[in-house]
């Protein structure tokens, strides 16, 4: 996969600022591309729009906080960049399959969690060259 530098930069911005109220206009300014072009090339590169990536990044961080902390769900919601508990819970359930509280109650907790790991054979068969948590 060939990465276009401003698109990589856009993903870095999303990774670093996912907890802020980031808009597509903010992101476009950061990487000096028009919103339309940014969305189009980002999607072609990463198979999802910047907004989809941002939501996924926020939910991934929420899962990590549910797994590793005792923070109340409302605090987790705000910490990962959502402004409404309702929309956070609905998106979490849509993407994760279960509610944040159910997720917390059935996720394995480690005092010393292992690094995230997807077996290489799976990465190869699914064409994954890098993933969020590796």
């Amino acid at each position: 996969m060939t990465f276009y530098k401003p698109i990589q930069q856009a993903r870095r911005v999303l990774d670093q600022q996912y907890h802020t109220p980031l808009t597509i206009e903010d992101l476009s300014r950061e990487v000096a591309l028009s919103p339309y072009y940014l969305i189009r090339v980002f999607k072609r590169t990463y198979k999802q729009t910047p907004h989809q990536y941002l939501v996924q990044r926020r939910i991934a961080k929420a899962k990590e906080l549910l797994r590793t902390t005792d923070l109340p769900i409302t605090e987790i919601c705000l910490a990962v960049g959502f402004e409404s508990l309702g929309s956070f819970s609905a998106l979490f359930r849509k993407l994760a399959g279960i509610s944040p509280s159910a997720y917390r109650s059935c996720v394995q907790t480690h005092p010393d969690p292992k690094p995230a790991y997807i077996p290489l054979c799976v990465c190869v068969s699914h064409g994954i060259e890098d993933h969020l948590d590796r």
């Binding site: 198979k47 999802q48 159910a102 059935c106 996720v107 394995q108 997807i118 994954i128 993933h131 948590d133």
Partner: peptide, 18 residues
């Protein structure tokens, strides 16, 4: 598997649509 069978989640990472 979690609600009916009592399993726990071990790993859950998303990359694009995978």
């Amino acid at each position: 598997y979690t609600e009916k069978m009592g399993f726990e989640i071990r790993a859950d990472f998303t990359n694009g649509d995978f």
